[in-house]
Structure formats: C-alpha cells, structure tokens
C-alpha cells in the first residue's frame, strides 16, 4: 500500500510547472489512471488516512479542465483585441508579455477548491500579472455596500474623478442575472468592484470594448455546459483584466 505522503508528493511533483495547455492532458491522466488506482487502493485498504487523502483529489481533474478553459478564454479575448488593433497606431495594442500570459499557477492555487456552492467545481486559476510586480498587483475583490448607487459610492471615495471618468464594474453587473446566486448585489456594487475609466479618449473606449468582449468569451463555456463560475473564478478573471488595463484607470490600480 502506497504511503499517503508519497502519493501526495508524487501528485505535487506532477502538478508543478504545468503549462496551461498541459492542464487538460494532466486532468485526463489523473482521472483515468492515477485516481483509479488510488481510489481502488483506498477502498481495499480500509485505511482511514488514505481514504481521507484520496477524497479531495477526485475533483482535481474537473478543476484542471476548468482552469484550462478559463485560460483559453482569457487568451482568446486578448488575441482578438491584438488582432483588431495591431498596426492601427495607438489603438491600444497590448504589450507582448500580456498577450501571451503564462498563467502558471502559483503554489497552492492550481485546482485549489473554494467553498462557493456551484455546479462547477471551483478552480482558482491565478492569472498572470506580467506588467506589474507581484507586490503592486492587488487581486480584484468584493466589499459590501447597501447602496445600489454605485456612481455615488465611487465618487464619494474619489471625488476628484467626478466628471472625468465613467464608473465601470470590474465584475460585471449582469452576472447577478445570468449566474444568480454566485455573487450578491451588495458585493457587485461595492467600491472594491468599481473602476474609473477616463472619459474623452477613444483609446479607453476601445479598452472598454475589449473588456466586454473578454467577459463575453469568459461566460461562453459556462453557458454551454449549463454551469456557473464560482465567485473566485469571477474575481480571478477581473484581476486579469485589471492587470492588462489597470494602468489606464483613474485611479490607477496597476
């Protein structure tokens, strides 16, 4: 019977240095080979420690596949924006580094389950932040507010921006409607979820368009499968958007 610690170390080694395009292959390997053996061994062993160790691993293949889908959607949105605006002279083409995010999961984040109730196994893929140093990249988050007047919420906090920016939701308002129950109204309209987009520059309107396209692409696999993203998946995607466009926001968040 395999030692539980040895099994964990082997799995940890297998998950290290994964490329996003290998996530699906790894998911299949785990599901069809490793977990089959582990589950059978745990069932036959009557060893509680082994059984307890195997149980949380059964969701990992689904989480890896969800992470791969999330990466592909993010990359697709980014590539669309670059193709549309390459060579247009100031149309806001993304830096090369941001166009090809490595999306390498940091330690502990690959397949890390979250406690959100969801029909989709949670997979908190930490997006790459190729433009800002880790110490400056604040992940997207939700706060809590009882006010739905989000513009007032934003301008009360940033009075110097009033008249100069349009207020934009990092995680879109429509998730309340299309994925009910994942996030609360009080979270969506909280200050932490609001961004100021400077007015008057066509570049910023183009950025907003690219952001809407990216979110639209993000939603598609969930709609197709009839599942819902977790709150953490929404926040991770918002963080990626912040990483790519946050230097254009007012206040600047990157």
């Amino acid at each position: 019977m395999a030692n539980v610690g040895e099994v964990v170390e082997r799995l940890r080694a297998a998950l290290q240095d994964l490329r996003p395009d290998e996530l699906k292959t790894s998911a299949e390997l785990l599901r069809e080979e490793v977990l089959v053996v582990l589950t059978a061994a745990a069932a036959e062993s009557n060893h509680p420690e082994l059984q307890e160790a195997v149980e949380p691993l059964t969701g990992v293949p689904d989480e890896l596949e969800a992470a791969a889908a999330l990466y592909e959607q993010a990359r697709s949105g980014t590539e669309r924006y670059i193709q549309q605006h390459s060579g247009t002279g100031g149309g806001g083409a993304l830096p090369a580094a941001a166009a090809a995010p490595s999306a390498t999961p940091s330690s502990g984040s690959c397949g890390m389950p979250r406690s959100e109730a969801s029909t989709t196994p949670p997979a908190a893929t930490k997006p790459s932040s190729t433009k800002a140093s880790p110490s400056k990249s604040k992940p997207a988050s939700f706060g809590w507010t009882t006010s739905t007047n989000y513009r007032k919420t934003f301008f009360d906090a940033h009075p110097d921006t009033e008249g100069k920016v349009v207020v934009h939701h990092a995680v879109e308002q429509q998730v309340l409607r299309i994925f009910p129950g994942v996030v609360q109204t009080e979270e969506v309209h909280s200050l932490e979820n609001l961004r100021g987009i400077p007015k008057g520059l066509i570049n910023n309107r183009v950025h907003l368009s690219a952001i809407r396209i990216a979110w639209n692409d993000f939603y598609k696999p969930f709609r197709k499968s009839g599942t819902r993203p977790t709150k953490q998946q929404l926040l991770d995607f918002a963080t990626m958007i912040d990483d790519q466009y946050g230097t254009s926001f007012n206040p600047n968040i990157r």
Binding site: E172, Q173, Q174, R177, I178, P180, S209, R212, I213, W215, N216, R223, K224, S225, G226
Partner: peptide, 20 residues
C-alpha cells in the same frame, strides 16, 4: 461581433433548460 453592452434588468432567462 462587438459587444456593446449587457443584459438589462428586463431580460428573462429560462434556467429550466441547459443551457439557459
């Protein structure tokens, strides 16, 4: 195509089918 907005509050989705 361009994505110019989102679903307004009067949009109705039928979640009894998959996909909605």
């Amino acid at each position: 195509p361009e994505v110019a907005g989102d679903f307004g509050d009067n949009t109705v989705l039928d979640f009894s089918v998959e996909p909605a």
